[in-house]
């Protein structure tokens, strides 16, 4: 099994392996097999298309967590110039699960905040698998306050399984760190653009997710609890994660339909990690358009618009 491919992508992996074999054989024997390779490549494309045209919410959830998926730092490297990372909450620590800083997007100074996961084991541990502790949220708040003071738009990138459920995190009041961000983000008078780039895991995601324009990459997810968590509580079995993922409606298309997000940013065939350049270009275009649109609102209108948007969440009778 090819670890770069998920379970449901294994047929694609097999075809790609075959293509590589043929190429290798072609080099060796000098036989012209270009036609054969082309045929197989076409087959791979149509197979990928067919697999990706009917992804289940659970499969999307796996894509959102794909180990090769681009993370916040990748998009910063690609889209932001003069980036200076700014560290620490000025009180306790610098949480590596959230990165933040100041930089230029299309030449415009902005403040950027995002969850960060790690690639290799050491990095994963250092980043705590993208699960922030309270100091991560407090650093984020500090940087957003900086943005407010110097009138810079805020771009946030969401990619976390959730806020870290640990002893120290509780001792340092994880709840309050999240809650305070929710309250403050509701009232900052600079534009806030939020993009879910991978996993939008619960309160830990929302804590940097209150804004004027909320977007999701096509194969990212956003949910109140992980499918596994939901399944183990409501179905009494984590095995039912696929059912839970479907019931909760965690995909970008479903959430757009429900009016919970504003925009879906398309990903190339096979997902963001199979076409990083294209994905970042799509993201850049969306961010640019959003900033232009939101930037037009006078402060009062911006605040009122955001407030009404927050007040509008939820369906009830009466």
């Amino acid at each position: 099994m090819n670890p770069d491919f998920l379970d449901f992508e294994q047929p694609i992996a097999e075809l790609e392996a075959k293509i590589n074999e043929l190429r290798f054989a072609g080099d060796e024997g000098g036989v012209n097999i270009a036609e054969e390779v082309e045929k197989l490549e076409e087959k791979t494309r149509s197979l990928t298309k067919s697999i990706f045209s009917k992804l289940t919410p659970w499969q999307v959830s796996q894509l959102a967590r794909h180990p090769k998926r681009p993370y916040t730092q990748d998009y910063i490297d690609q889209l932001i110039t003069d980036f200076q990372e700014l560290h620490g909450d000025r009180a306790y620590a610098d949480d590596a699960a959230i990165i933040g800083g100041i930089g230029r997007f299309n030449n415009q100074p902005v403040v950027i905040i995002g969850h960060q996961k790690g690639r290799d084991t050491t990095e994963k541990v250092r980043r705590n698998f993208g699960m922030p502790r309270p100091e991560g949220y407090r650093k984020a708040l500090r940087l957003m306050q900086l943005a407010e003071r110097f009138r810079l738009p805020i771009l946030t990138f969401i990619d976390t399984p959730g806020a870290y459920p640990g002893v120290g995190a509780e001792e340092r009041n994880q709840s309050e760190a999240i809650a305070r961000n929710l309250r403050e983000m509701a009232r900052f008078s600079v534009p806030i653009i939020c993009t879910v780039i991978g996993e939008g895991g619960s309160g830990g995601a929302l804590a940097i997710g209150v804004g004027d324009h909320v977007m999701m990459l096509e194969y990212s997810t956003y949910s109140v609890i992980s499918p596994e968590g939901c399944a183990s509580i409501l179905w009494k079995s984590a095995e039912k994660a696929a059912d839970a993922a479907a019931a909760m409606g965690i995909t970008s298309s479903r959430l757009k339909e429900l009016g919970l997000i504003d925009e879906i940013i398309p990903e190339p065939l096979g997902g963001a990690h199979r076409g990083f350049e294209e994905t970042s270009q799509n993201l850049a275009n969306a961010l640019d358009a959003a900033l232009k649109k939101i930037g037009h609102f006078p402060q009062n209108e911006l605040l009122e618009r955001r407030y009404q948007r927050l007040m509008g969440y939820g369906h009830f009778a009466g």
Binding site: I178, A179, L182, R183, E184, M185, A186, R187, S202, G203, L206, G209, V210, Y222, S223, V224, I225, C230, I233, L234, A247, M248, G249, I250, L255, L258, L260, Y307, L310, M311, Y313, G314, H315
Partner: peptide, 26 residues
Amino acid sequence: GARMQEALFSLMQMAKTSAALAKMRE
């Protein structure tokens, strides 16, 4: 906590209630 049966709508109640408190604070 949040009501799982209302999925992301319930998560958004966290933002909604906190925003109302921001107004009271002001």
